[in-house]
Each structure stands twice: as structure tokens, then as C-alpha cells.
Amino acid sequence: MPLDVLLIDTEPGRIRTLTDALHALGHRVVATLPNAETLSTHVQQLQPDIVIIDMDGPDRDTLDSMAAMSRTEPRPIVFFAETGQPADTIGEAIRAGVSAYVSDGVQAERVKPILDTAIAQFNAFNELRLERDQALDKLEERKLIDRAKGLLMKHQNWDEEQAYKTLRKLAMDRGQKLVDVARHVIDALENLLDNAKR
């Protein structure tokens, strides 16, 4: 039997892939929200079986609060970690940055595949983001190294190869990364050139 899922996520791309993955499992995604501002109305109207939420939004406390206050209601909602999920699954979800709240009465073994899918999607997204950040860092590093090279060429009247070799040698001698040496060279030479201008 399909479960009704409500998604709260600030990342539109991830909402799409996770929705597709849940549909493929045969579940219904009844609503997707960028934040929990209208959450209580949605929960009342749609009565989802499970709410999946991105831990990087400020709205988890609203769900914690709804869980605390719903205890006396006919269909309370419960933090997924309290529904008898394996410890591994709970840990993986927290590490991946995804959390979930489940309507009381939905069996733990029906919740687990949904959680696993969400964890996988969040992990894939985190990896992509990491790669993108690293690519950006690389670009920044290359720019810094080029600038240090340019300064050395100008200051010492060296050609490009000699400037690069000097940077490499400095890095090896000091046991530092090339980009850190480049930063030092830029600091030192820019100060020199500035003073020379005055």
C-alpha cells in the first residue's frame, strides 16, 4: 500500500529527484514545501503518513513541537528515531542531514525503505555539492598561483618557467602546498611593490 509523503526541502533539485525516487517505490508525494511556514495547515488537510525534512532549514523545531503537542491528539506524529528504526539508519540519516516525522501507527518496516531512499538522495546531493565546492576551490587556487607567478616574473624579470620552478621549490623546501606558498609570495611582493610606488 502506498504511503503519503510530505517533503520539506530548500533544494528544488533534490525535491525533484527524491519525488521521482519515491514515486518509483510506489508512494505518493502529496506536497512539497520550501519551508514549514504553512506546515500545520498542510498536515491537517493532507494527513501525510510521513514528513521528510531537510535538517539545514530552521523548521525542524516546528515539527519537534508539533510532535510534543500532538501526543494527546488522535493521530500524533512521532520523530522517526522513536519508531523502532535500526540505530544504523538513524545515524546515517543524521549524518546525511535528513530527518523525518511519522504518523503514529505507520509500521516501522514500511518507513525504513522511504528513509533509505531519502538518505541515498541526500548523500548523492552532498557529494555533488562537495565536488562543486572542490572544483571552485581548485579554480581559486589556480588563480592565486598564476598571480604569484606573474608577480615573480615582474619583480625578478624571470620567465614563466623559472617563476613556476621557484614556487615549486619553495613549496618542497617548506613542506607547504603550492597555493600556500603562492599566498605568501603575493603578500610579500605586493607589499614590496606598494612601498616602491610610494
Binding site: G57, R60, D64, I94, R95
Partner: peptide, 15 residues
Amino acid sequence: EHSWANIRDRVSWGL
């Protein structure tokens, strides 16, 4: 962090 619930969980699970 973004919420008290995150703080509780990430301290609980050693992150």
C-alpha cells in the same frame, strides 16, 4: 546549526 533538534541529535550521535 539550524535547530535545537539538530543540536540534540548531532550531540547524541557524536557528530
